[in-house]
Structures are given as structure tokens and as C-alpha cells.
Amino acid sequence: MSNAARVLKLAGSRPPTLGNGRLICIDGPAGSGKTTLAAEIASLAGGAAVVHMDDLFEGWGGLGRVDEQLGTLLRPIAVGSSGSYRRWDWPGNAWAETVLVSPAPLLVLEGVGSGASAFADLTTVLAWVEVPFELRMARGLERDGDSVADVWRQWAEDEQALFARERTRERADVVLDGRVGSRHG
């Protein structure tokens, strides 16, 4: 069974936690395969909504302040209303439009920090994806370019501090190898 099928099956075996829907959070270090897994889950589920945490961060330094964005996204959906977040425009280095997300049977939230403990009550499945550091760095620099190597390394330090504080891996319902069925994350 693929990682995506495994996570989707687990989510389907549990009651809704996000209002009438289910929330799959795919967390883990940058470059581990989260984005690919999210796309595979959405495809298997027939087009589930996917929100990428990269859109919620205020640039490279925004990791520590993302809970507010998650609150405006997830708490309204939990009570049957549309949630929202402000999208970060990476090339423009500024906040862009507000994105509305309607309640749905399945929402996949992927990215570093998606498994925030402040929203554990709304999470149906927390999946942790990991690969060795060297592979993550290679994937990240292939995707983002060598010019961001220093900020990528700082990001790696920041995310490790977040994961330690949140105990994300320890709280995960499933721990997955991002080398299995995934190429990027």
C-alpha cells in the first residue's frame, strides 16, 4: 500500500474532526516529500482541497508566527464557515490576496508546521514525512536554487526548534519515509 493510500485509509477510518470534514496534516522537514504526498492523497481522494503552508509563511522568517494564519483558516471551517488566510507572495516579498477555503469532506494541509499542537483537536491524521538531511538539502537547492543555501540552512535550524517544541514527530499518527513514492516535498 502506498504512503498516500495508507494515510487516506487511516483518515477514512476516523470520525470527522474539522466540522463535518476530515483534516490530514502532512508535516516534517522541508524537502522531505510532503508536497508530493499531499498531491497523491488529493488525487486518490478525487480532488480533496490542499493548502500549502508555504503560502501562509511571512517569507523565510515567518515560521514562528504561522499559528494566527492557521486559526483563521481552520477554526471557521470547524464550525461550518469558510476559513481564510493571507497568501505570501514570495517573489514580491509581501502579503498578497486573502484566500477563502470552504468546508470540504477532506482538507489536506501540507508543510512545515501544519501539525501545530494548537490545532490537534481538529486534526484527523497527522502524518510525519522524513528523509536524511543531505537529501532534503539537495531537493531544496534543486527546487529553490543555490542562492538560497544560507537561508535554507537557517530554515532547517528554525524548523528543528519548532519540531522540538511542538513534539510533532512524537505526536504523529504515522511516520513515513519520503523516499518511498515521493520525489520532492
Rank of each mutant, 00 (worst) to 15 (best):
13 S>R: 14
13 S>C: 13
14 R>I: 13
15 P>V: 03
18 L>K: 05
18 L>N: 02
19 G>Y: 08
20 N>G: 15
21 G>F: 02
21 G>Q: 03
22 R>E: 02
22 R>G: 01
23 L>W: 00
25 C>K: 06
25 C>A: 14
26 I>M: 07
26 I>L: 04
28 G>W: 01
28 G>I: 01
29 P>D: 14
30 A>K: 08
31 G>Y: 03
31 G>R: 02
32 S>G: 14
33 G>Q: 06
33 G>R: 06
33 G>F: 06
33 G>H: 05
34 K>T: 04
35 T>G: 03
36 T>D: 05
37 L>W: 03
37 L>Q: 01
37 L>F: 04
38 A>M: 04
38 A>P: 06
40 E>D: 13
40 E>P: 11
41 I>D: 05
42 A>K: 03
42 A>D: 07
42 A>W: 04
43 S>F: 14
45 A>F: 02
47 G>Y: 10
47 G>A: 12
48 A>W: 07
48 A>L: 12
48 A>S: 09
48 A>M: 09
49 A>T: 15
50 V>G: 05
50 V>N: 05
51 V>N: 02
52 H>K: 15
53 M>Q: 10
56 L>E: 07
58 E>I: 12
59 G>K: 04
59 G>C: 06
59 G>E: 02
60 W>V: 04
60 W>G: 00
60 W>N: 01
60 W>H: 00
65 R>T: 15
65 R>L: 14
66 V>R: 00
68 E>W: 14
68 E>M: 14
68 E>R: 15
69 Q>F: 11
69 Q>C: 10
70 L>R: 09
71 G>D: 09
72 T>L: 14
72 T>K: 13
76 P>M: 00
76 P>H: 02
77 I>Q: 03
77 I>K: 04
78 A>V: 15
78 A>K: 13
80 G>N: 08
82 S>T: 09
82 S>Y: 05
83 G>F: 00
84 S>F: 09
86 R>M: 12
87 R>K: 06
88 W>V: 04
89 D>C: 08
89 D>T: 08
89 D>K: 07
90 W>Y: 03
90 W>M: 08
90 W>Q: 06
91 P>Q: 02
91 P>S: 03
91 P>A: 01
91 P>Y: 01
92 G>V: 11
93 N>R: 15
95 W>V: 01
95 W>D: 00
96 A>I: 11
98 T>D: 12
99 V>R: 04
99 V>H: 03
100 L>G: 10
101 V>H: 04
101 V>M: 09
102 S>N: 09
102 S>K: 10
103 P>S: 00
104 A>M: 13
106 L>Y: 02
107 L>N: 03
107 L>V: 10
107 L>M: 08
108 V>W: 05
108 V>P: 10
109 L>K: 12
109 L>N: 09
